[in-house]
């Protein structure tokens, strides 16, 4: 465990109790009154919500670090693979067809969307990734374009589904869900997302040394024994599991995968392998913190987590672009 991982693990240890106690109803860690209600709020509302925030944040952070390493680009985001938009489209379909009432409806459709994105990526771009005859760099570039096209198509179909929603209620459900939140989530969602996300992070970890080799470029990486097809497979599966399961239980939560590796990178030796675990921990911290903040903001209705993170993330992205223009990145 490197220094950055220790720092963010320690921060997470501090944030978890704060997150459990914070909310519209503040729970005193030492107060005795209202013990039964407090225990109920803690165990059935706050704890699953905190665990879900940690799981989703960890998945997005790790996927962001892996994606930036794979594309050798600090502006890369897990959304570039088109997996998150396809998972969102799957979830939207469950609302559209009225199958979202069961706790499994939305996640199952969203995971099916993520799986479809994976299959499309494999079919369109998988064959092109450096088979020894493609031009240098052509494989990853084509793969990225394929991901962007899938994302674009999923976005268009989602917009179509909203405009042609069967009822105003369904439309409202879709829009609210797309904004991303972990309000009112239960242990059921935790049991869906946690195993898949952990499996996804483990898969991404398997790719870590190959991502290090990509620091020197695609050709040099292959000369170091990296198998581009295996690397692509690990990246797509790892991203689908982490991002897909996150979208399945919480909707679209953007910018975490973009911001977190930037926060972590200066604390490491900057190799992608050094970034994966700290990014997972930092992502967990960021989503947990953001979810705690939206809970205590004095608004009539709770600010959606996805909106809150976008409000933080978009200016951060602009700041990154300005720094890149000045050659400081």
């Amino acid at each position: 465990m490197n220094r950055a991982a220790v720092i963010f693990a320690a921060l997470l240890v501090v944030l978890v109790p704060i997150s459990l106690l914070a909310g519209r109803v503040w729970i005193s860690p030492i107060g005795a009154e209202g013990t039964a209600n407090a225990a109920l709020i803690l165990m059935e509302l706050r704890l699953p919500r905190a665990v879900l925030a940690i799981v989703i944040g960890a998945g997005l952070g790790a996927a962001g670090a892996a994606m930036q390493g794979y594309l050798r680009n600090p502006l890369a985001d897990p959304g570039l693979f088109g997996i998150a938009p396809m998972a969102a489209l799957g979830a939207v379909a469950s609302f559209w067809f009225g199958l979202a009432s069961s706790s499994w409806g939305v996640p199952v459709f969203a995971l099916a969307g993520a799986a479809l994105a994976m299959a499309l990526l494999a079919a369109i771009a998988g064959r092109s990734v450096s088979d020894g005859r493609a031009g240098a760099g052509g494989g990853i570039a084509l793969f990225t374009l394929a991901g962007l096209m899938i994302a674009s198509l999923a976005g268009a179909l989602t917009a179509l589904a909203i405009t042609m929603a069967p009822s105003a209620f369904a439309m409202s459900q879709i829009v609210m869900w797309l904004n991303g939140a972990i309000t009112d989530r239960s242990w059921a969602e935790v049991w869906i997302a946690a195993p898949l996300t952990l499996a996804g992070i483990a898969v991404l970890m398997l790719a870590s040394r190959s991502l290090d080799a990509l620091t020197l470029g695609e050709e040099a990486a292959r000369s170091l024994g990296v198998d581009p097809r295996r690397l692509l497979f690990l990246l797509v599966v790892g991203t689908a599991l982490t991002v897909g399961s996150g979208v399945a239980v919480a909707g679209i939560i953007g910018f975490v995968g973009l911001i977190v590796p930037h926060l972590v990178r200066p604390l490491t030796d900057r190799l992608p392998s050094s970034l994966l675990l700290p990014s997972a921990l930092a992502g967990a911290c960021l989503v947990l913190l953001a979810d705690s903040v939206v809970r205590v903001l004095p608004l009539v209705t709770e600010l959606r987590l996805g909106i809150a993170l976008s409000l933080i993330g978009a200016p951060f992205f602009l700041w990154l672009l300005i720094r890149m223009r000045k050659g400081r990145l």
Binding site: R72, N73, T215, L216, G217, E219, D269, R270, L271
Partner: peptide, 11 residues
Amino acid sequence: PQDTDIAWDVA
């Protein structure tokens, strides 16, 4: 390789 663009500012 002929041209190596080092992606990250590694030591």
